[in-house]
Simulated assay, not measured.
Amino acid sequence: MAQSFNAAHWPVEIRLKSAEKILEVDFDNGVRFRYPAEYLRVESPSAEVQGHGPGQKTLVAGRAAVGILALEPVGNYAVRIKFDDLHDTGIYSWSYLYELGEKQAENWQAYLEAMKKQGLSREAPRR
């Protein structure tokens, strides 16, 4: 999924709720999105998840319990999210975060259906 760094809406407040594994973002138009860490992780804009071109997205399984360790500003256009599974290469532009919020129900349903179709689990494998 290509990212645009020309955001139509800018965050006015970002709150990491570590215990709930939720990132809340309030945008300048009054819209607030609540992003579960798992959703952000499986929709990471990194090449590891999205690939290098259309149709190359990788389905990320076993991340139901993933949390967010830290948020790191990237210029004035994005944030890097550091997850506790050590994934930290995705740069979430404001426009991408807004899009993820708008399409959260649709994206999440597609993810669950793809996981089921491939026989994968949201739960991490037991050791």
Rank of each mutant, 00 (worst) to 15 (best):
G62C: 10
A7N: 12
L40I: 07
E72T: 15
H87M: 11
H9I: 03
A7W: 12
A65P: 02
A2S: 11
Q104W: 09
Y111E: 10
V42W: 05
P73D: 06
L59D: 02
A19V: 15
E24R: 14
K117C: 05
K17P: 01
F33A: 01
S46C: 14
S121Y: 00
A37G: 07
E72C: 10
D88S: 13
R41L: 06
Q56T: 13
K57Q: 14
R122M: 07
A105S: 13
G51W: 00
G30C: 06
A61W: 07
Y77N: 06
Q104L: 15
D28P: 09
L23H: 11
A110T: 11
R32Q: 14
V79P: 03
A8K: 15
E123D: 13
L23I: 10
Q109M: 09
Q50R: 15
R41F: 04
A37E: 05
L16D: 00
S46D: 14
E72N: 14
S44A: 15
I81D: 06
E72L: 11
N76G: 11
G119N: 09
Q3N: 12
I22E: 12
I68E: 04
E106D: 03
R80H: 02
S95M: 01
Q109G: 02
G67N: 03
G30S: 12
A124S: 13
V49Q: 10
H52R: 03
Q118M: 12
D84A: 08
F83A: 00
N76F: 04
D26E: 13
D88Y: 07
N6F: 13
Q56V: 03
K17A: 13
G62D: 08
L69C: 07
A105W: 05
M115Q: 02
K17T: 12
F27L: 04
F83D: 03
Q50F: 10
V66E: 03
Y39H: 00
K116S: 12
A61S: 15
P73W: 00
I81G: 08
